[in-house]
């Protein structure tokens, strides 16, 4: 390709309000911050429990069950890490922002650098996304159990700010998990024909199709769920950590 052609590509565009690199830079900064924070919590913190509140990083309490005294979160954290790490939305973001493959759409790369996509190590791991989904779904059940506990104060129903935060978090995590591309495939995407075997006229779509359609609609916003649930996990842990450090008190909204 002659250099004169390349050089002519300007950057001004009428279609974007933000410059094209804004998204990648945001991703780079926020993801890095979250990863650093998570690393700190998972490796160095001994607990995420504050009375009936449990930080999502520490659920299920596998370390407690197995009697392992140090870094209990490490035993569980690899599940959401792999689930999010192989998520189609996170892939899109980190290939752009971290691997610069490409940094922004249409941006020049170094063509001499070998590119193997998701066919070779390490990115081939992404093809097992469904397995990480299975595990993440189990973890999600525990998070729901924790959320129920968050509404029970010494055997009595109650609502604290922490209960609301944990409920919000688990709802967003559920939305994120159910809008997953791999789940969309499992629920019906793998099928070509929803009305087969044919016989009677299926004027009304069968249940499986309707679920596939519903999941497809949620799936369209998978990226939004990904961001929102990441922020809510972060916020939940920060809140519980502030309680543990006695920096703020938990406000009870309903006794």
């Amino acid at each position: 390709m002659p250099s004169s052609v390349r050089a002519a590509s300007a950057t001004a565009s009428p279609t974007r309000y933000w410059p094209p690199w804004a998204q990648s830079v945001t991703t780079l900064v926020v993801f890095s911050a979250f990863v650093l924070y998570s690393f700190g919590v998972v490796v160095f913190e001994r607990t995420g429990q504050y009375h009936n509140y449990l930080s999502p990083f520490f659920s299920p309490p596998l370390g407690q069950w197995l009697g392992i005294p140090f870094a209990p979160a490490v035993l569980v954290a690899w599940i959401p890490l792999l689930f999010r790490g192989t998520c189609y939305y996170y892939r899109r973001e980190y290939y752009h922002a971290f691997a610069a493959d490409p940094f922004t759409c249409g941006a020049p790369e170094r063509p001499e650098r070998a590119y193997t996509g998701e066919r070779a190590w390490p990115w081939v791991v992404s093809n097992w996304h469904r397995y990480w989904w299975y595990l993440a779904a189990i973890v999600l059940l525990f998070l729901w159990k924790d959320t129920v506990s968050a509404f029970i104060f010494q055997g009595q129903f109650g609502v604290g700010v922490g209960s609301v935060i944990m409920l919000g978090n688990v709802v967003l995590l559920t939305a994120y998990t159910l809008s997953c591309h791999a789940f969309r495939h499992l629920i019906g995407g793998s099928r070509d024909c929803f009305a087969c075997p044919r016989g009677i006229e299926a004027v009304r779509p069968p249940v499986r199709f309707r679920w596939w359609q519903r999941i497809s609609r949620w799936n369209r916003h998978h990226g939004r769920w990904a961001w929102a649930s990441m922020m809510s996990v972060w916020a939940t842990d920060v809140y519980i950590r502030l309680l543990l450090a006695h920096i703020i008190p938990d406000v009870r909204l309903l006794k």
Partner: peptide, 20 residues
């Protein structure tokens, strides 16, 4: 070679027919 695609979504962004 669908495995070479790394789902960066650039194709979808430019589609004049709005195909996802």
């Amino acid at each position: 070679g669908v495995g070479l695609c790394n789902v960066t979504h650039c194709c979808t962004d430019v589609c004049p027919e709005g195909i996802e």
